[in-house]
Design a protein around this nucleic acid. Structure first.
Lengths: 232, 232
DNA sequence: CTCTTGACTGACGATATCGTCATGTATGAT
DNA sequence: ATCATACATGACGATATCGTCAGTCAAGAG
């Protein structure tokens, strides 16, 4: 009897190393099937085909129709999982890149700029992560909570002059969102230049003096290690 | 034989006054049916039920299933028309309210703040207008082109210090978008206060000095005439 | 080697939704 | 008064999609 769908990979002997790839071949195979479905779903999300027939999705994932129901209850469940999946991975990548920065303002600016760069490096993942539009603000994991954390740090450190954290977060997230939309609409535009300009503007908005905002927003970005694409 | 669907109200003797409600009863009736469908569609958009069966939509509109095909080719066509409809009306209302302001910065700030107020006064229309998320930036009519116009005017007048119009527009639109999302998530929040704060921040971002930004962002708003709700 | 387990698979019957069309009816023209 | 028109309507046949299920197979346990 197949699983009632979408249960963790075999509740039996969970001998797999605590957090990582399952130990034995069967579990790995199962995981591969699930990943194929998620990845196919992300492609459909990017194309806006949120109502594609399940059969078509499974064909794109190159698995049998029946397999779908081994992993997900419904198309909505699949898409939800796919949308959750993307910001998780992106957020991790961002943290790794901006770790080690002391000044909260710098850290904020770098993360903001890296987000735009990610949009060029990982357009599909980003498109999925942003596919909920302003709804991303409700997310409890991924990019937005990190932005909130950075803003808070900046306020505590006295670098930002902000009275209403939620409001500032909304402005920042909205800016990032529409900046990505702009980058999508104008593929020829240099993402690094645009994001530096935007970061400077946002820093001014957050209360930094002109010169300081410009300085912080134009610090060199760390070299981007790709890695993310391979990791899928 | 019924129309091939979605043609202007009877190509025969278009004696109706150039732009307004059709003259004779039949055309008015047709228009009522179409409006009922549009309005029903907007309700479904607000609820996010973008894939509701057509039958359900026609029932919500209280018209026969067949009537749907008299007016629209497909569900997508209906939703598209419904989405186009909303910003059109909102934009008109905005223009009327901010007409007569001389200083482009003031005009910009007032329009921005009124948008938030509209979100409280006309939540459904606004939800529909914003339902495309960052995609609104691609709209060629409605709220966004007006924002662009106001920004341009401010730049020409030397009030805004902006090097990249598209970029500034993206930041402003994104801010407005997520501000509305914030207002939706926190219904208890005072829209006028929040939008004034946000406007001040944006004006700073656009290059106004602190004090001036605050002054412009807190000018009294014109009393809002409702009117819009009745007009439907 | 044999057995048990659990995931993969595609065919299939059930169901949901679609779009057409024949008919009814009110309007406006003659 | 009579007729022609055009929209409204809902029943219906065609089609698309769903979710189940019984069979298959490979992996791992004993």
């Amino acid at each position: 009897m197949p699983k009632p769908a979408n249960s963790p990979p075999s509740a039996t002997r969970r001998a797999a190393s605590r957090r990582d790839t399952p130990r034995n071949r069967r579990d790995r195979a199962r995981e591969r099937t699930r990943a194929a479905l998620l990845q196919a779903a992300q492609r459909f999300i990017v194309e806006g085909r949120l109502h594609a027939p399940i059969l078509e999705i499974t064909q794109a994932a190159d698995v049998g129709l029946g397999s779908f129901y081994n992993h997900f209850q419904s198309r909505d469940a699949l898409f939800e999982a796919a949308v959750d999946d993307a910001p998780e991975r992106l957020g991790g990548a961002l943290d790794a890149l901006s770790a080690g920065l002391i000044d909260p303002a710098e850290r904020f600016a770098q993360s903001f700029r890296m987000t735009s760069r990610l949009f060029r490096l990982e357009p599909e993942l980003m498109a999925v992560a942003l596919s909920t539009g302003p709804g991303v603000m409700r997310a409890t994991s991924g990019l937005v909570p990190r932005a909130r954390r950075d803003l808070e740090a900046g306020i505590r450190a006295g670098r930002f002059r902000v009275t209403d954290l939620d409001l500032a977060l909304a402005l920042v997230v909205g800016a990032s969102l529409c900046l990505c939309e702009l980058l999508r609409a104008q593929p020829e535009r240099d993402a690094d230049v645009a994001s530096a300009d935007a970061a400077a503007a946002l820093l001014r908005m957050l209360g930094l003096a002109d010169a300081e905002a410009t300085r912080v927003a134009t610090l060199p970005l760390p070299a981007t290690r790709v890695g993310l694409a391979a990791q899928r």
